[in-house]
């Protein structure tokens, strides 16, 4: 048996009892083990308290991310920007394990920019989303997968169609009219189900976002220090002033 803590990181996950099983049983045991690893509990991760929201409308995509950078129970920074611009009309928001997030996002950002420079044209939001998914998918089956959840919002430079892509750390890609990550899903998706319409204006989109963030302030047990809000339109990405000091009375 391999001794635990011999400098080999695999030792910790070595399962001696698998040795006595038949190949089929090992296969099922593996399925079971992987299955468990992929059913992570949000509350055990500090990234579980991060908020990512995205809403599309008639001619825009709104992306919002919480400002708090957390490490365990500590807030390290209250003005964190969890978004990166990939090109003129594509924005990516990210959350997840501390080191992975920025590393992965900036890797994607650099590649997107490299493509734009080499080809003198930007990749479309859809192309970028699939590129990101590919990178995340190959990372998933590597020795150390990135633990990053993403929202990718954009407006197609040619058709001017807004789009929003939801990606999780398993590289699940879903194009959606509105999306959220983390606990925000449980609180905001129902609000968006009720109030969202694909034809809303930017003003209505911001109102809808406010509705969601108010609910988060009301119900989330932690202070996420307000939101960075950005809108992607055909003219590029604009920062939206958002009132973080608004006090929401608890229910």
């Amino acid at each position: 048996m391999v001794k635990v803590g011999e400098g080999n990181s695999r030792a910790a996950t070595f399962q001696p009892h698998l040795g006595r099983l038949s190949p089929i049983e090992i296969y099922h045991a593996r399925l079971g083990r992987l299955g468990k690893a992929w059913q992570r509990d949000l509350s055990s991760l500090s990234s579980g308290w991060e908020v990512l929201l995205g809403i599309t409308g008639r001619d825009f995509t709104l992306i919002a991310a919480s400002k708090a950078a957390m490490r365990g129970a500590t807030i390290l920074k209250a003005s964190d920007d969890k978004t990166r611009q990939l090109n003129k009309h594509t924005l990516m928001a990210f959350m997840g394990e501390a080191g992975d997030t920025v590393q992965f996002a900036e890797y994607i950002q650099a590649n997107a920019q490299l493509y734009s420079m080499r080809n003198e044209t930007d990749l479309s939001p859809s192309a970028l989303a699939h590129f990101v998914r590919g990178e995340l998918a190959s990372s998933l089956r590597s020795r150390k997968p990135y633990n990053v959840n993403l929202l990718l919002g954009g407006v197609d430079p040619i058709t001017h169609k807004p789009s929003l892509y939801w990606l999780d750390y398993l590289a699940t890609l879903a194009p959606l009219p509105y999306a959220a990550h983390g606990y925000a899903q449980y609180y905001c998706l129902s609000i968006l189900d009720k109030h969202h319409h694909p034809d809303i204006s930017l003003g209505q989109g911001i109102k809808l976002l406010t509705l969601c963030i108010d609910e988060l302030k009301r119900r989330l047990p932690v202070d996420f220090k307000g939101m960075v809000v950005k809108a992607v339109t055909k003219d590029g990405i604009v920062d939206i002033e958002f009132d973080d000091d608004k006090v929401v009375k608890s229910a």
Partner: peptide, 13 residues
């Protein structure tokens, strides 16, 4: 449907 356990993420997948 696309879902993560009980949570429905997308209804057009």
């Amino acid at each position: 449907r696309l879902g993560l356990q009980a949570l429905t993420v997308s209804n057009n997948f």
